[in-house]
């Protein structure tokens, strides 16, 4: 299952990464080599095996529903590249997404 240049471009865009044409070529080669290697897992007989989805088989711990103080607005915005009236700032969103 070889990865194509279009796949690389599309996948990079999905991950919000821009690749130069040279990088695209390099990634194409390297990723194909890596994917070629990982194809090995096809050799394993995985019929009837449940996927291991987590680091260990325990069950999740829960917390009680208590509201505690977090960060102040000032602390929350400290380090933000741009703020305005207590908000983080991004270029204008043309349309709502979700």
């Amino acid at each position: 299952m070889a990865i194509t240049r279009d796949d690389v471009r599309h996948t990079a865009a999905l991950a919000r990464l821009a690749l130069s044409p040279e990088e695209e070529s390099a990634f194409l080669l390297e990723l194909n080599k890596i994917l070629g290697y990982v194809e090995k897992i096809r050799e394993l007989d995985l019929a009837g095996i449940e996927p291991m989805t987590h680091g260990h088989a325990g069950t999740g711990s829960l917390r009680d529903d208590a509201a505690l103080d977090g960060l102040s607005q000032e602390e929350a915005l400290r380090g933000a590249p741009e703020t305005d009236e207590g908000h983080f700032v991004v270029p204008q969103v043309v349309r709502p997404e979700e």
Binding site: Q73, L77, E85, G86, H87, F88
Partner: peptide, 11 residues
């Protein structure tokens, strides 16, 4: 007020 009920987790 905006961004006053936040913590590192939800940020």
């Amino acid at each position: 007020p905006p961004n006053s009920q936040v913590c590192p987790v939800c940020l």
